[in-house]
Design a binder for these strands. Structure first.
Lengths: 199, 199, 199, 199
DNA sequence: TATGAATGAGCGTTCATTCAT
DNA sequence: TATGAATGAACGCTCATTCAT
């Protein structure tokens, strides 16, 4: 895990059934998608779907878990690469968030959108994962403030602003558009640096 | 309209049925909410609901239209108050967005969340309203850049970042929390100023 | 309740929907009957069925409760009529059981057949009602033995034999057959008297 | 066949798959048991089940046929042992029925419970077997009445009472209880003798 | 023999909506 | 205005069964 290439999004690790489900859930939402629609999208019969997953809910849970886990592992790898330099920590963290939301647009969109559709246990797990992500950024902001590198009054408020900003990418990014994930990530890193008073 | 007090959120103009509907849609989503649930939440019988609205869809449409219209009128009023000062234009615009997303938390949340649940015609209308909002901010950013007041490379990208940042408020703001809408708005104005290179 | 006419089976107190359900459940069993079949038998659409009952299970529960309650109230009335004469107590009790299983053939059949199809709570209630019935007879047998009127070694074993004997009526009785409920009941009373050593 | 030891229930002739099926059918009924449940109970995969039996229905049919055949052969052997003594004929017949319903509790329970779950052809066969059993007892009762040994008015009614009485054993008998099959059978023989006016 | 993977049909239930009153 | 009663269509899911391997 330590040697993970967190900037590499070439192979999509999702099994094909889940990839179809992601597309369909993004288009119509969890409650707006029927199991028949999911099955058709995956080229399966309805019972075929249930052979692979115990329930509709199990499908969205698998998606959420994979999404949160993927982002978390990339974030840790980025953090490790940054070493002790807090400015670099912030830069790589935002770069990681932005790349993830651009490259894994649909997955990231679901992860932030369908939290409320989960049943209690899975919801608690996903919320914990989301909070874990948030605290990673808050810690960076606080460290930078402590060291005098950042001008940050309320770290948790700013963290939320930064995170929603990046989340937004998954709402409008299109591979057909003029911007590449890399250039977007660079821009967002600069945004973040301005927000903490650098630059 | 020109003399509207865009900072005043005292009276909630929503009729009680719609207010109940907003709460329920926020909790479970449009497709996750049944008409029975809506009727029960509003203290009505099912046919009673249909006396007031032609369909479930008509309810979410009314909500979306009211939300977009309220924000739009406040935005115009803020813009008028700012006059020709582009820094003030940006400040009041962001203040207006932030106040709206804090004071009209649930309404704003629905407006950004349930776009995909609308039928084509209503969806087109809401998307147009969303874009209109976005262009208002883009124009401000471009004007500031033209005048040399702002350091903005890609105005539309930054506008989206600013807007999603503010949208985020509606996801985590709570009246029970330590922050008032006013102080949040002030903070977000400062964020915006930093993002355009002021401060 | 004390003045109930326990020999009178003229009016069937079941609402029409339940009467249809009884017939269908008798023919195919609870698990062998679909809600669509029930609805069709009752001349309703499927949601129409669910307007009156919360679930398929609620229907069988209503039937079981009505059956057990009806038999119990008749049994108490018969017991009251018998006064302190233990021979009469036995006679009227068996007469009551036999009349019930002949006149309420299908209802009685379900009550003894579908116990295992009930969910735990309802099952416990029905089992308690069945046991209550059984203990009423056991007490009569024990009283008769104590007073030297009956020659009974194992009262609870004999009670079960008597009860299953009567239960059997609901399996073969037909109003088209040559025997009337009244004559059957008389015969079964004589069976019971022989079994306790009278006659 | 004539030298069969009809009192011996030591070895259960059922193949293991059928024995598991009997247990499951008794617990949940034929329609309440899925083929998946059957396969799991037998430690087989679903296609493994279908290797041994052509269908779910074929399983219950095999069970019913074995049950009816076993009881029939024992009844004939008991009858042969009794010779021409009609009192002994009745005694051994009832002993045979009681022993069977206690020793083959579950099998006997299914035979009387799941008749309605069979498809027409198999159902007709099982009903014929049941009637054949019944006529054997009716004939004994009539013979006893003709010879003046029994005081029986309606032989077929009494036969049904006796048979359901014995059938009841399979509903409440437990090997963990205080009574042995043998003592139960003795008691039921005495019941029968009383019912025909002996003793 | 044995099983992973699949399916058409049907399950119990709920959906948004309507209508007679 | 208001509602008890109803419905066609669809929901999530499971049924008994099959087939390629």
């Amino acid at each position: 895990m330590g040697e993970m290439d967190w900037r590499n999004f070439e192979q999509d690790s999702l099994p094909p059934l889940l990839r179809c489900a992601v597309k369909t859930f993004v288009a119509h939402g969890y409650h707006g998608t029927s199991t028949r629609t999911l099955a058709r999208a995956a080229g399966l019969s309805l019972p075929g779907l249930y052979y692979h997953f115990a329930s509709k809910h199990a499908i969205i849970v698998a998606i959420m878990d994979l999404a949160m886990d993927d982002l978390w592992r990339r974030s840790l790898a980025a953090h490790a690469e940054a070493g002790d330099d807090v400015v670099l920590q912030l830069g790589l963290h935002i770069q990681c968030l932005a790349l993830f939301h651009a490259h894994r647009r649909e997955l990231a969109f679901l992860a932030s959108t369908e939290l409320r559709s989960l049943e209690p246990e899975a919801q608690a797990r996903s919320i914990a994962a989301r909070d874990r992500q948030e605290y990673l950024l808050i810690d960076i902001l606080r460290l930078g403030a402590t060291r005098g590198a950042f001008d940050v009054a309320d770290a948790s408020q700013l963290a939320r602003a930064l995170i929603t900003m990046c989340t937004g990418i998954s709402q409008w990014f299109s591979t057909a558009g003029p911007l590449s994930p890399g250039s977007i990530a660079n821009d967002y890193v600069r945004y973040a640096q301005r927000l903490v008073g650098l630059v």
